[in-house]
């Protein structure tokens, strides 16, 4: 689903991501863990095609991000760590804008907006301008918009930040649903308990380099993910 091979990204003298390789298969929830500034966001943005890698190759569903970014983007959805959305639009206008860009038909979009809006209890607020939304509401709207076109791959940067416990639970269920249907999720998080319970596979990044990856059992063994992470960070 997502194949990252020898990704390297530099910002001036600083190497943010150094020769990173990851392979995410259909049906997998893949967690991405690392301290602040480790290179998680850079990796995610490169996978989406926002950042141009200095070296390496990224493929989404077998299509090269470098050669055909638009075709890749049709298969995926991305939610950044701080979902800054168009404050000048109402929630519903934003969702319709996203649906228009992805070519989602009127019937399908209406059904999905109703379904996910109700799941996140955001439906009554969809007529409000996004500028009046709280951080959590923006996060919910970003999640709904990501699910709107039924993507095969969802890339999320810290998706649980700002969500209330009920919305967090809903999101976890939705993530599992995507994977059960043959899709894949690649997300970064600082909440190790969530990663431990939710992820099929996990990768730990430190100073731009991948230091461990694999199934949850392979990475943590008999210890907790937290103790393994702290040990590796030292």
């Amino acid at each position: 689903m997502l194949n990252i091979q020898h990704l390297t990204k530099r910002f001036g003298d600083k190497t943010a991501v150094d020769d990173l390789s990851l392979h995410i298969l259909p049906g997998e929830i893949y967690g991405f863990i690392g301290h602040n500034g480790a290179g998680k966001t850079t990796t995610l943005k490169s996978a989406v095609g926002i950042l141009k890698p200095d070296a390496g190759e990224i493929e989404v569903c077998g299509i090269s991000v470098r050669n055909d970014p638009t075709a890749c983007k049709r298969q995926l959805a991305y939610i950044p760590d701080d979902p800054d959305l168009y404050g000048f639009m109402t929630g519903i206008k934003y969702l319709n804008f996203v649906a228009d860009i992805y070519g989602v038909s009127s019937e399908v979009r209406a059904e999905r907006i109703r379904k996910y809006g109700d799941l996140f209890e955001l439906t009554p607020d969809l007529a409000q301008p996004i500028s009046a939304y709280s951080h959590g509401m923006k996060q919910k709207l970003a999640i709904i918009s990501a699910w709107l076109h039924d993507p095969k791959l969802i890339i999320m940067d810290e998706p649980f930040v700002g969500l209330d416990p009920k919305a967090s639970h809903t999101l976890k269920l939705m993530m599992r649903e995507v994977c059960d249907a043959g899709g894949a999720i690649f997300f970064s998080t600082h909440v190790l308990e969530v990663a431990e319970k939710l992820c099929d596979k996990v990768a730990i990044i430190k100073e731009g380099r991948l230091i461990r990856s694999g199934t949850m059992e392979e990475v943590k063994g008999d210890s907790s993910l937290e103790s393994v992470f702290l040990e590796l960070e030292e």
Binding site: D100, S106, R114
Partner: peptide, 25 residues
Amino acid sequence: KAVYREKREKQAGADAALLRKELRR
């Protein structure tokens, strides 16, 4: 506070959606 009432939205092409977005901005 405006409360959302569901109504059928017409599907528009990407170019029209982008143009509307710029005008709204």
